[in-house]
Design a protein around this nucleic acid. Structure first.
Lengths: 199, 199, 199, 199
DNA sequence: ACCGACGGGACCGCCCGTTGTT
DNA sequence: AACAACGGGCGGTCCCGTCGGT
C-alpha cells in the first residue's frame, strides 16, 4: 500500500466525521483541512472536488455501518435471532457511535433529498440494502417456519428501518438513549407477538 | 394589522418554504429575497439577522403542523380515535405537504442538532410537544378505560413519533407513499392489539 | 442619473484600462478592485461576473475607438479625405492612446480567438464594422468618381485594417511610432497611386 | 543525443503548441503535463520554471517559423523573387499552420508587451530579425539594380511585417483565408509597382 | 529520469449585514 | 418602509513549485 493510498484513506476517515457532524454543505474544505492536518493541495491531489470526497466519505460510512450489521446479524442462526441482533446494532450505534453527529444514512437522506441528487441516489441504495436485509431475514424465517406465514416482509422492512431511524433522531436530539431503548422494546415485542411462529 | 405586520408575515411564510427545502445553512438571503420579491433592506427591517428569521420560520412551521394535528385529533372523542387521527395527519402531510422538502421537525432536528443550538432547543420543545400529546391521549385513554391499564404512555409517545418521522424520511427519499402507509398500518395494528382495552 | 449608474460607468472605464493592459485572463478582480477603489461586493453589485464586466468593457472600448474614427472621418467630405482621416485616427491612437496597452481590438482578437467565444464574436463584429467603414468610403468614392472604378473596396478594407493593426503591434512592441508612421505613409501612397481617380 | 535530451525536445514541442493556443498565462503546467504525458517532476527536471519553458518554447517556435522562411526565400535568386517567396510563407502558414492558435510572433507580441518583459525582448529580437530579412533583400535588390534606387528598405520591412501579421490576425479571427490572400495581393502589387526597377 | 504527494497562495464568486437614500 | 450600494470575508478550486521516493 503506497503512501498516497494511506493518506487517501486517512482523509476519508476524517472527512466522514466532519461531514457527518456538520452536513455536506455545512462542512467546508477548511474544516477538512483542519481535521486532516493537510493543506488544500494535499487534499485535492486525492479528490478532484469536495463532492467526490463527500461521495467517498458516504460510501465509507455505509461500509462501517454495514460491517456492524454483518458482525452481529451473521452471528445469529435463526430469523428471530437475526432480527433481534439488528436491534442490538442500533443500540450499539447509540451507545458507541461510529461517527459523531448521528446516523449518516439518516443525515444524508435528509440533507441530500432535495439538494444533492448523486448523494441521494447512494442513500437510496444504502437504505434499500438495509431494508432488503430485513426482508430477506423475514422471508427466510417464513420459509423455515420460524416466522408465521402471514408475516409481511416488505412491511417489516419499512417498519424496522423507519422506527429505528426515527429513534436515532430522537435519541440524538435529546441526548438520551431511552428513545432508542423504547423503540427497540417495541420492535422486540413486534417480533415476538406478530412475527414469530406460534408453537 | 399594519402593513408592516403583513409584510413580516409574508416574509416568514415564504422563508419557511425556502428554509425547509434548502436547509438553514443551505438557504441564502438571496434565495429569500427572490422568494419574497423583497430586497435586503426590506427583509432586514423586520428581522435583525438571518438567524432571527430562521427561528421565526421554524416557529411558523410548527404552528402550521400543530394546527393540522389539532384539527384532526380534536375532532375525535375517544383515545383510540385520537391516536388514529394522528396517523391520518401524517398521511395527509405526505399526500399534501404543507411545505416542500419534508417534515420541518425532522429536517431541523437533523441539521440543527450539532450546528445550531438555539434552533435545536426549539425542535426539542416542538417534538416534546408532539410526544406529550400522544402521552396525554394514552393516559386519558387508560384513565377512561378505553386503553388497557398496562399501556405505557411514554413508550407509545416515542414509538409513534419515531416510526412516523422515520416513515416521512423513507417516503420522501423514495418519493413513494407506501412507506408511510406501512408505518401507519403498523401503528394502527399496534393501537388495536397492544393498547386498546380488551372488552 | 443615479449614483449606481455613475459607479457602473466608473467601473467600466477603469476596468477597460486594466483589461487592455493585462488581458482578460491576466487581469484579476483584485486588479479591478484596486483600480476602482471598490470592494468585491461593490463590483459584483453592478456586474454578475468577471465575464460580464469584460464584455461591457470591450463594448466601451469599441465605443471610444469608433468615436475617434467618427470625429475625424465625418469631418471630411471626399472619399480620399476620409481615407486619409482614418490614417490620422491611428496616428492619434499611437500618440495619445485612449487606453494603455495597445489597441483593444487587436489585443482582444488575439486573446479571445481560441479562448473566449463570446468575446471573439464581439471583436468580429467590431472589426467588421471598421472594415465596412472603409468599404463604404471606397464604394462611395467610386460612385462619385473620386476613386477609380477598378478600386476593390473589399480588398482595401482588409489592407487598411491589417496594415494599421499590424503597425499598432509593431509600434507598441518597440515603443516607437515610426512603424505606424511608415504604415501610414504606405497607405497614403496606396490611396494616391492606386485608388484615387486619375484626372 | 541522450534520452533526457530527447525528452526535453519533446516537452518543448508539445508545450509550444499549448502556449500558442492558450497564451502563456492561460496555459497551466497541468495543460502541459497532459500534452506531454509527463508528470510534474518530469518537466521540472528539464526546466526550472514555467517561465523558462515558455522562453524555450518561444525560441523553438521562432526557429520553426524562420526555417519556413529560409526554405522558401533562400530558394529564390532575385530580390523580387525573395520578397514574393516571403508572401508565400505566410500563405503557407495560414493554410498549414505550424502551430494551432495563430502566429506565435503576433500572439506573444500582444501578450508579453505589458506583462512579460523577458518574453517581450525575445519577440522584439525575432520580429526585428524578420524585418531585417526584408530590409536586406531590398537593399541587395537596390544594389543589384533589381529594385529601384528609391526603394526604402526600412519602410518596406515595416509594411511587409505589419500587413502580413495584421492579415494573420484577420484570417484567424474570421477563419477565412481571404484576408491573407488580399494582403498578399496588395503586397505583390506593391513590389511590382513601387519596388521593382523599371526596365 | 521521472513520479507523485504536498504546501501555500491566488483565483472568482457568493455570502451576510450595514449604511445612506428614497 | 423599502431600495440599492457597498464592505469585508469565506467558499471551493486550481495554480506553481518543491521534495522525498523510486
Amino acid at each position: 500500500v503506497s503512501k498516497g493510498e494511506r493518506t487517501r484513506e486517512r482523509i476519508i476517515e476524517q472527512a466522514t466525521a466532519v461531514f457527518n457532524a456538520k452536513g455536506y454543505a455545512g462542512a467546508s474544505m477548511s474544516d477538512i483541512m483542519a481535521a486532516t492536518g493537510l493543506n488544500k493541495g494535499g487534499i485535492y491531489n486525492h479528490f478532484e472536488s469536495k463532492d467526490a470526497l463527500a461521495l467517498a466519505s458516504f460510501d465509507y460510512a455505509v461500509e462501517v455501518l454495514m460491517s456492524r450489521v454483518d458482525s452481529l446479524v451473521d452471528a445469529e442462526a435463526t430469523a428471530p435471532g437475526k432480527l433481534l441482533a439488528l436491534l442490538r446494532v442500533f443500540a450499539w450505534n447509540i451507545k458507541e457511535p461510529p461517527f459523531e453527529g448521528g446516523c449518516p444514512l439518516l443525515n444524508t437522506a435528509i440533507e441530500a433529498d432535495d439538494a444533492h441528487p448523486e448523494l441521494r441516489d447512494r442513500v437510496r441504495v444504502a437504505l434499500a440494502g438495509l431494508q432488503k436485509r430485513v426482508r430477506a431475514i423475514v422471508r427466510d424465517g417464513v420459509a423455515s417456519g420460524e416466522l408465521r406465514p402471514a408475516a409481511d416482509a416488505d412491511a417489516a422492512a419499512t417498519v424496522f428501518v423507519a422506527t429505528l431511524e426515527g429513534a436515532v433522531m430522537l435519541s440524538n436530539l435529546y441526548k438520551d438513549r431511552k428513545h432508542m431503548a423504547r423503540a427497540i422494546d417495541h420492535l422486540r415485542e413486534f417480533v415476538e407477538t406478530s412475527l414469530r411462529a406460534i408453537e
